[in-house]
C-alpha cells in the first residue's frame, strides 16, 4: 500500500516542523510514507473566498501528484476536507487527516515521549464539524474526541478545553483579512478562554487556527504558546 504525506501550503510556510513531526509519527507507527515532490496548495483558500474555478489548475496538479497513492494523509483537517468534498470522487475514502488516520486506522496504544504541560485543546471547526474528529457541541450524539484520545497516550500531559470548546476562533481563510475586525475579536475571545484554563500551550490539528491565535497571543504578549497536536504526539521521536 502506497501512503503519501500531503503538505498543506501554509503549513510548509509557517509551521514546517509539523511536517517533520507528521513524517516521524507515521514512520514510527510503521507506515512507509512517501513525500511526493512538487506539492503546493489544494486550492482551499481560493475556493472558500469564492474563486474555486480559478484554482482549477491547483486541483489538477494535486490530482496528478497524488492519484497513484492508495492513502493520502495530511496534517490539516480543513485542507483534507476540501479535497474530499470539492474534488469529486477521486480521493473520497482515501484521504485522511493525520489524527483521524492514526486514531482510526493505525490505533496506537502508546506513544513514546513526555509532554509535561497543561495544554488547552482547540477543537477546530472543520476538524470537528466536517471531519468528525470530535462530537460537535451542537449535536445530540454520544461524546467522543479523537484528539483527546490521542493526547492521552502522551505521558505527563494534562489536557483541558476552554469554555465554548468548539466555537470558531475567527480565522476562516480570507475571512481573516476581509472581516479582520470580527476575526480579531473572535480570536481575542478564543485566546482569553484558553488563558483562563491556566494552560501553557494551545494545541489544535490545524495550523491555520494556531497561526491566527498565535498572532493574537503575540500581539497581546500573553503567557501562552501554540503547538500543533502532531508535534506533541511526536515529542518523543
Amino acid at each position: 500500500m502506497k501512503v503519501a504525506l500531503f503538505i498543506p501550503c501554509y503549513v510548509r510556510a509557517v509551521a514546517p516542523s509539523v511536517i517533520e513531526a507528521s513524517y516521524k509519527l507515521l514512520r514510527y507507527l510503521g507506515v512507509d510514507v512517501a513525500v511526493p515532490e512538487g506539492q503546493t496548495c489544494c486550492g482551499q483558500p481560493m475556493g472558500n473566498a469564492g474563486y474555486e474555478d480559478e484554482a482549477e489548475h491547483l486541483k489538477k496538479r494535486f490530482e496528478k501528484i497524488f492519484e497513484e497513492y492508495d492513502v493520502i494523509v495530511g496534517p490539516s483537517p480543513s485542507c483534507v476536507v476540501y479535497v474530499r468534498e470539492r474534488y469529486g470522487e477521486l480521493f473520497r475514502g482515501r484521504i485522511y487527516e493525520i489524527c483521524e488516520y492514526v486514531h482510526d486506522v493505525l490505533k496506537p496504544t502508546s506513544l513514546p515521549g513526555r509532554f509535561p504541560h497543561r495544554v488547552s485543546l482547540h477543537n477546530n471547526c472543520h476538524g470537528t464539524r466536517l471531519e468528525g474528529l470530535a462530537a460537535p457541541s451542537e449535536l445530540n450524539v454520544p461524546y467522543f474526541n479523537k484528539l483527546k484520545d490521542l493526547l492521552s497516550l502522551v505521558e505527563g500531559i494534562e489536557v483541558v478545553e476552554p469554555e465554548r470548546p468548539d466555537e470558531c476562533c475567527g480565522f476562516g481563510g480570507l475571512f481573516s483579512i476581509e472581516e479582520s475586525a470580527v476575526s480579531v475579536k473572535m480570536g481575542e475571545d478564543k485566546v482569553r478562554r484558553h488563558l483562563a484554563t491556566g494552560a501553557e500551550y494551545v494545541t489544535a490539528a490545524d495550523s491555520s487556527c494556531l497561526m491566527h491565535q498565535g498572532g493574537i497571543i503575540a500581539a497581546q504578549k500573553l503567557p501562552l504558546k501554540t503547538i500543533h497536536i502532531v508535534e506533541i504526539l511526536a515529542s518523543g521521536l
Binding site: A13, V14, Y23, V35, P36, I177, S180, E188, A218
Partner: peptide
Amino acid sequence: VGGHWGKGREFPDIVSSKNLESIEKQD
C-alpha cells in the same frame, strides 16, 4: 493589499523554503 491582518494580531513568521521532501530521502 488586504489591509488589517496586522492590527491586533502579529504576522506569522515565514519559516523557510526548506525542502521538506528531502526528509524522506534523508530518512
